[in-house]
Design a protein around this nucleic acid. Structure first.
Length: 589
RNA sequence: GGGCCCAUAGCUCAGUCGGAUAGAGCGGCGGCCUUCUAAGCCGAUGGUCGGUGGUUCGAUUCCACCUGGGCCCGCCA
């Protein structure tokens, strides 16, 4: 699936170990080497655990198998030491000379930092952000937006053909309510001012009224029906709502630096829905029940796995004839295969929708869609007590509120630094720096956790500037850049070669060498937190190096060149890594 | 009724195909700024990995059951 080029070190070492096992034991096939980085440097750099697994299979003693494998491994130039330990681990010490050469090659690759692209590029569509018209964007949308954007960048960098799509919630029941509601309570100026706020206000009123006033609810349904059959006046209103909302959304996306290749909302599919349900009926997948058109999983001759006992139907058309988002998602699945020619579609949507997507994917398959569809799910955003998010004054936290608070906090922090004479920042750059640090902190706080976990919201944590947080890595980057400025060197035009002497240098090299593997892993598994974790470890490793090994005042010329090269690699990997996460770096802070 | 997720240090969370003495951040404690940016570094402290069984050389990880929490599934999206 991906290249096993010389630059993906762990994959290379794994292949070396696997081949050594096969050769040492004269096996017909190369067994899995189970190569892992060691947890403790005293065990070397990597450990091969495959001998133990193999011993179980063959009914032999693990240490007896491990011994000849270790001998064989020693023949490779990359491996300086290989000893059997414990129940059958083979601890590997990687040759510093070899590591240095690898890093020099990486250094020479200015375009990709040694990260090989995938062998087979796929056409991947990423569906994320997807806010609703008339509903305030909240922190939940933030997760989808930030994670989706990072995945787009990661997948694109590893060589896939990626299309990012904003599947806007711009069609459906709410528009009937909005049309009658705006007629009743709407304020045009407010709509121009901030469409989402005004539409949200009106929607809340209309929705409450509809629950008590059947005539009102009925008129909303009538307006919706008119809209759906192309009524000119309602279509004009709808167009206006969408356009006004788009203006508000663009402000937020601008702040986040997120862009989309396509804005194809639910409305885009609405004229395809009738065809979809007809197909479902024709193929015997859906039938009418209580006026609604439904798929009863437990009635299908061969129900999809996991849905055999599901009694509740998957409704694709309501009793009143209106379609639902289930229908839209099916139409989108067909369109994305037939027209967009996607090999893979990623849906970056919260975990509560897992069952919905399970059904959409299953039904799409029954309709012959072979596209790999994956629900890239993420946990919910909880308050400190598991309740919906509230800010201190009890008002719901809006996205804009969150982002501007982050920027303000960063600005205050920078001002502090300037006042104390610690920071060397041009006042002209203050706005830009505060924005990059603040927004970066918010993005990192989100991306660094396992997506699936629920998100416990906490201002101080999300906008934290200490420890494992965005600014920590931005700071490491800044320190690198500062060295280049002070030393008046061009980090892309260094001579010399990497030589690893001090422990901190070797440790740093071990981190640098993993970059490509990590980027691929994060992209393949849709888990940006792997990259976050690694960049944090890299920064920590660099900080230790920075404390222990002076670069500009190195003891001799060769050491200085080597350390400059290491620093250059750190800055490039941090810069690239953060950029892939959608986080900007700054030159000074 | 059907299905999904979660439980790891005081708090918030990592933990890759089952590997050695389970890691980080924050908080608290003790150190480090005449030397490349202290949003930093170093040290000490902090754990019945919810419980009980099972699988095996080895389980936080896999399986079963149990407890406790959250979520989804007929007419919102």
């Amino acid at each position: 699936m991906y290249a096993c080029g010389p630059m993906l070190l762990e994959r290379t070492l794994n292949a070396i170990a696997s081949a050594a096992m096969q050769s040492a034991l004269s096996l017909p096939e190369a067994p899995p080497a189970l190569l892992r980085p060691t947890q403790d440097p005293k065990f070397g750099d990597y450990q091969v655990n495959g001998a133990m697994a193999l011993a179980k299979q063959l009914g032999k003693k693990p240490r007896e198998l491990a011994e000849p494998i270790a001998q064989k491994l020693l023949e490779h130039e990359a491996i300086e030491g290989a000893e059997v330990a414990g129940p059958g681990f083979i601890n590997l010490h990687i040759s510093s000379a070899w590591l240095g050469r690898e890093l020099d090659a990486m250094y020479a690759d200015l375009t990709r930092d040694g990260v090989d692209p995938v062998d087979v590029a796929e056409r991947i569509l990423v569906d994320y952000s997807s806010p609703n018209i008339a509903k305030q964007m909240h922190v939940g949308h933030l997760r989808s937006t930030i994670i989706g954007d990072a995945l787009v960048k990661l997948l694109r960098f590893v060589g896939h053909d990626v299309t990012s799509v904003n599947h806007l919630g711009d069609w459906g029941t709410q528009f009937g309510l909005l049309i009658v509601g705006m007629r009743e309570w709407g304020n045009q100026d407010a709509l121009d001012q901030d469409a989402i706020v005004e539409l949200g206000r009106v929607y809340a009123l209309a929705s409450a009224r509809a629950k008590q006033d059947e005539a009102f609810a009925e008129s909303a349904r009538a307006e919706l029906a008119k809209l759906q059959t192309g009524d000119a006046e309602n279509t004009a209103l709808w167009t206006r709502f969408v356009a006004a909302t788009r203006k508000t959304l663009d402000v937020v996306y601008g702040q986040l630096g997120v862009t989309f290749d396509e804005w194809k909302g639910e409305s885009f599919y609405h004229d395809q829905l009738e065809g979809v349900v007809q197909r479902l009926v024709a193929e015997g997948l859906a039938r009418e029940d209580d006026g609604a058109l439904c798929v009863f999983w437990n009635e299908l001759p061969e129900p999809p796995k996991g849905l055999e006992k599901q009694k509740e139907p998957f409704i694709v058309r309501k009793r009143d004839g209106a379609f639902l988002y289930s229908t839209t998602d099916l139409a989108a699945a067909l369109y994305r295969r037939d027209v967009m020619k996607a090999d893979r579609v990623l849906y970056v949507v919260g975990t509560p929708q897992a069952f919905h997507f399970k059904q959409v994917f299953a039904l799409s398959q029954l309709l012959g869609v072979t596209t790999r569809m994956e629900h890239v799910a993420f946990g919910s955003v909880l308050g400190e007590d598991g309740k919906p998010i509230r800010s201190r004054d009890g008002v719901e936290v809006t996205l804009q509120g969150l982002l501007s608070e982050a920027v303000e906090r960063a600005r205050a922090r920078i001002q502090e630094g300037i006042d104390e004479g610690r920071l060397m920042i041009d006042p002209a750059d203050l706005d830009e720096t505060a924005t990059k640090l603040g927004i970066g902190a918010v993005k990192y706080a989100d991306l660094r956790q396992n997506r699936v976990s629920d998100y416990t919201f906490d201002w101080d944590k999300m906008i934290s500037f200490q420890g494992n947080a965005g600014p920590y890595m931005q700071n490491a980057y800044v320190r690198c850049r500062s060295i280049f400025r002070k030393g008046e060197v061009d980090p892309d035009q260094l001579g010399g070669a990497v030589t690893l002497a001090a422990d901190e240098e070797h440790a740093l090299a071990r981190m640098l060498v993993r970059f490509g593997d990590i980027v691929h892993q994060a992209a393949e598994t849709s888990q940006p937190n792997y990259l976050c974790e690694h960049l944090f470890e890299l920064s920590r490793s660099f900080s230790r190096f920075y404390e222990a090994c002076s670069v500009l005042n190195a003891e001799d010329e060769a050491t200085q060149q080597s350390r400059l090269r290491l620093t250059a690699l750190v800055s490039r990997q941090l810069g690239r890594g953060l950029t892939l996460l959608g986080i900007d770096v700054v030159e000074r802070m």
